[in-house]
Amino acid sequence: MKNILVYLEAQGDGLKRISYEVISAARSIAGDSARIYGVLVAGNSGQAENVGEYGLTDVIVANHILLERYSSTAVAATIFQAAESVGADCLLFPANAAGLELEPRLAVKLSAGYVADCTGLSADDGIIATKPVYAGKAQVKTKVETDKCVFSLRPNVFTATKADSPVSTNFTEMVPELTDNDVSVVVTSVDKNEGTLDVLEADMVVSGGRGVKSAENFNLIESLAEVLGGAVGASRAVVDAGWRPHSEQVGQTGKTVSPTLYVACGISGAIQHMAGMSTSKVIVAINKDKDAPIFKVADYGIVGDLFEVLPKLTDRIREVK
């Protein structure tokens, strides 16, 4: 491996947390010889001003009038030009909404092998990527057979690690060569649920299942999530019943999450649900049924009525925090 290019994703005045996780993963596989570059598309160097703390010495900042509205095809073309300009043979992306659309395009452009949604990367004899399959019921170790490789990394799994001492970062402006043909898809508006955190990005997730009994009762789940500064998740049964939106569904046909803390309330633990949350760092289960399968994957379980337990638990956590 010669050079690694890391896709940096801006958010407001800074970068998404996953960007630092990806930089750190790049450093872990770079060894002594490979050089790491970041690429920030349609952003400014101020957004990446602290990447030096994470050991990133070079950032390409690409801007073009055709990048003013987000276009996955134009961004892919830009990243490709950045990769070629620095001779990158390994590209790292976040495995999130944007990254998962970009990386297959880059893999095709670079004739590279590609592994999506990795939870581990190691560099021994070539790079070996670990990736959950069957929604995490199993995982595979994959070797890329091509000279070039592209990986996307699952958020919240790789640790963002600061360098022993900060480095100074060299920012290079780049104007990619783009035409209207590169902008074959374009985002015309974004509708973010301000103030609510997505289960995929949240460090703390409180999920409710059938045991919550009604949409109204989710205020108990919301209260605990709020005290923890986390997001609300839901089981499939709850989403199918229309109590919560699809975007909150955790499980094999919903989202796969790995927060620091996952609290499952009134969720019995269908195999499809457990596939979506079993990589969480700490799991707490609250369920009336002591034989519920969810207790088998829990670090801590409370056998009891969630309607009694949740208000007390929420109060107690509020006191401690």
């Binding site: 987000y70 999130n96 909404a97 944007a98 074959s184 898809v185 374009v186 985002v187 015309t188 508006s189 974004v190 509708d191 973010k192 649920n193 609510t196 955190l197 997505d198 995929l200 990005e201 699809h246 975007s247």
Partner: peptide, 11 residues
């Protein structure tokens, strides 16, 4: 669908 919301995309 994107993290925490949705976007409208045209093609």
């Amino acid at each position: 669908d994107i993290e925490g919301g949705c976007e409208i995309v045209e093609a």
